[in-house]
């Protein structure tokens, strides 16, 4: 019985130390495609639901931690359908292996709009898009599609962030102003002065 306890304890320690990824609460809304391959067929996309995320103060987000390579030539995700134009941020990083490309498609009735976001190895591309209709995102290795050579495995991270209605309501100029406002301190509405205030 003593041996049994000893072996079970050893095995348990081995399991905990080696295998189970313990993810912090802060990044749980992530599709982990490197574990379970996502389909590359645009007709069978993986549904990604944007949710509130600790550390992101506005709106909802989701992400994909994925790999491509060998027979796995594409990953396709369906983000949902928006009745009005929605401003979304797409954040693509090609972490290892090769460059990455995300093709964002918004289908609104007969109207189809496509955008391409490409990131070189080690690079992050952050792009804001205004989209209406059904939104699909396909991730590919651009080198593989431009030549017949076999590719190395790509490891990529892709994040989707919808900050909400208030950002949709900004005009283009206002939106650009907010972008330029990054890093500025909160303006003072009230100042303490000596003497009699104005």
């Amino acid at each position: 019985m003593r041996y049994l306890t000893y072996f079970l304890a050893l095995g348990l320690v081995g399991l905990l130390a080696a295998g189970n990824d313990v993810y912090a609460q802060s990044n749980e809304n992530i599709v982990k495609d490197y574990r379970n391959d996502v389909d590359g067929d645009p007709d069978r996309p993986t549904r990604v639901r944007l949710k509130a995320q600790a550390g992101v103060d506005m709106g909802r987000m989701a992400g994909v931690w994925g790999t491509l390579g060998g027979d796995d030539v594409a990953d396709v995700f369906f983000l949902g359908k928006t009745p009005d134009f929605a401003r979304m941020q797409f954040d693509l990083t090609a972490l290892e292996g090769s460059s990455a490309m995300a093709i964002v498609t918004a289908k609104n009735g007969d109207e189809i709009v496509r955008y391409q976001i490409e990131a070189a190895i080690g690079e992050t591309k952050t792009v804001w898009l205004q989209l209406k209709g059904k939104i699909l995102v396909q991730v590919i290795q651009p080198e593989l599609h431009s030549s017949s050579s076999s590719s190395t495995q790509l490891t990529y991270a892709l994040y989707f962030w919808y900050p909400g209605d208030t950002i949709d309501a900004l005009s283009e100029t206002e939106f650009d102003n907010v972008e330029d406002y990054k890093g500025r301190e909160k303006p003072r509405v009230l100042h303490a002065v000596k003497g009699v205030a104005k």
């Binding site: 550390g55 992101v56 103060d57 954040d91 952050t126 950002i167 907010v178 972008e179 990054k182």
Partner: peptide, 9 residues
């Protein structure tokens, strides 16, 4: 980046 944008907003 998202937090910086929200603060800027």
């Amino acid at each position: 980046g998202a937090s910086a944008f929200a603060t800027a907003f």
